[in-house]
Each structure stands twice: as C-alpha cells, then as structure tokens.
Design a protein around this nucleic acid. Structure first.
Length: 267
DNA sequence: GATCTATGTAGAT
DNA sequence: TCTACCTAGATCG
C-alpha cells in the first residue's frame, strides 16, 4: 500500500513545487523547512514513505497502525480532522492523518534506516539472500521473522498469515528449519502477492492466476476489501479443509492459521 | 455515546 | 512481555 502511495506521490508531486503545512500543528517546523520546495523524489522503503526535497531535507513518514493519506482535488478545502501534514501540488492535495511518525530526516538518518531494514519484496534492489541468512540461522518462529522489519521490510500481519497459509507452513516453525527451496518459494510468492497488492490497492491473497491452493470455493473478503484465506477469520472454517481457523497472540499481534493445512513439522 | 479494534513500532520493565 | 501512542471506523448498547 505504501509503495502505491509513493508511486502516486512521485507521479503527482515530483518535479513540482509543493506547499507543505501542518494544519494540526504537530509538524509545523518540519513543514516550514520544505514548504515551497520542489519535491525531488518520493519512494517507499519497507513501510516508510520518504519525500526527498534535497540534501538532508527528507520528510519520513511511517503510518503505523492508523495512519492514512487521502488525496483531494483542487481547489483546496479546509482540513477536516487532525491533519498532520498537508501537501498541495499542481493537480491535487494530500492530507496525512494519524501517522506513527512524520519527521524531517537527515541523509545519515535515511542511510541508517536503509541499513536497518531487511530486503523489501517490492523493491528491485532487494536481495532475498540477506533475509535468508537471518532466517536460516534463527530459532524464532517464522511468523515472528516475517514481520521483523530487520529481516524483511514491508511484510505486515496480513501477508505473514496469508503467505504461511499458502505454503502450508506452521507459523511457529523455527526459521532455521525452513529449507532453502521453501524460502525461495515463499519469497517469490511475497513478491507476486505484494506487487499485486500495490497495483490493486488492496491485499488479495486468493489469486486465480497464481495460486498454490485450489479451494474451489469463493474466497472471503476481509474488512479492508481484500480477499484472504485466514486473516481475521478465527473460528470460521478453513476455505480449503473446513477446519476452524485458529488464532493466537504473538508479540502483541494476532496470528491466524489453519491447524490442519499448516501442521507442525514432524520431527 | 461508549467501547473496541486495527495492514505498527519504540521504549520501559 | 508490557505499555504507550497516533486516529477513525465499526460495533455495541
């Protein structure tokens, strides 16, 4: 989703002067620093959105759980609700609400961010081997590793539940018990699913054209509009085998899986 | 109208 | 492992 956002900003703002403000008042100084400048580039790095205005002049946004960006046509209307940052370009206006962070970054801080994050399946410069070297040495559960942004950047709670389901992998299986070919299939699937998601603007994990699981049943639509197998379907029948989808808290997030389709590996 | 929940992360304990 | 934090829509009464 963030990549889709970044592409939109790149298309609609890059190369143009942008009026930046903070109607809510919590990003006033940062907004003033870039207000009226030409946006050089917008890009996504994992779940981070970067607006590059110049050397040491980068606005870094992390939406967190609740953050949203909404686009509006011109002319500009008075902001509604808590608008942390408003950008006005030649053709439209974007309002940012509720981000976990929105701050001015130096180039060194951006470099540190790049160094900290694992490969992002949506970036062409991603090196999946970096993730494999972490994963294949870790005793942590796959479910933990997939959403660890220092292992893989950009994968969230929906993709982790869904990709593990699609590959019949037990979420609690230690990373180091994953075989190399299983990892390669997992990575390739993430790239495909996330590209599809970035194009469509929603998370679909039941894809007719590329689907390791043939359910023969109508997929289920989740509240975000995407089509999923197990995410937020606790207690409902698995779309493949009919077993109740299980749920458990893991690291403060809800995990969902099918105990029958994703059994613990035999030892 | 109150309460709950959420595609997340950092920092304290 | 926990708690805080940012906001809005869904759900409950």
């Amino acid at each position: 989703m963030l990549h889709r956002l970044a592409r939109g900003h790149q298309r609609r703002y890059a190369g143009y002067q942008v009026a930046v403000s903070s109607p809510q008042g919590r990003f006033t100084a940062g907004a003033a620093a870039v207000d009226g400048r030409v946006l050089v580039r917008a890009e996504a790095l994992g779940k981070h959105l970067l607006h590059v205005y110049g050397p040491d002049l980068v606005v870094g946004v992390h939406l967190g759980l609740y953050g949203t960006v909404t686009a509006h046509p011109l002319p500009v209307e008075p902001p509604r609700g808590q608008v942390r940052m408003r950008m006005v370009g030649p053709t439209q206006c974007d309002d940012l609400r509720g981000p976990a962070s929105c701050e001015l970054l130096t180039d060194a801080e951006v470099a540190a961010l790049r160094a900290r994050l694992g490969p992002d399946p949506l970036r062409r410069d991603a090196d999946p081997d970096r993730a494999w070297s972490r994963l294949s040495r870790s005793r942590a559960p796959l479910a933990t590793l997939l959403t660890d942004q220092t292992v893989l950047a950009g994968v969230g709670n929906v993709y982790r539940a869904e990709v593990l389901f699609r590959h019949g992998l037990d979420p609690m299986r230690p990373g180091r018990e994953l075989r190399r070919e299983q990892w390669e299939a997992l990575w390739a699937d993430l790239v495909g699913l996330m590209r599809h998601g970035a194009r469509r603007g929603r998370i679909d994990t039941v894809l007719p054209e590329h689907d390791p699981v043939r359910t023969g049943r109508a997929p289920r639509r989740d509240r975000h509009g995407g089509e999923v197998y197990v995410y937020r379907r606790a207690g409902q029948p698995c779309l493949v085998c009919g077993t109740e989808v299980a749920t458990a808290g893991l690291g403060g997030r809800n995990l969902y899986w099918c105990p029958r389709c994703q059994p613990p590996a035999a030892r």
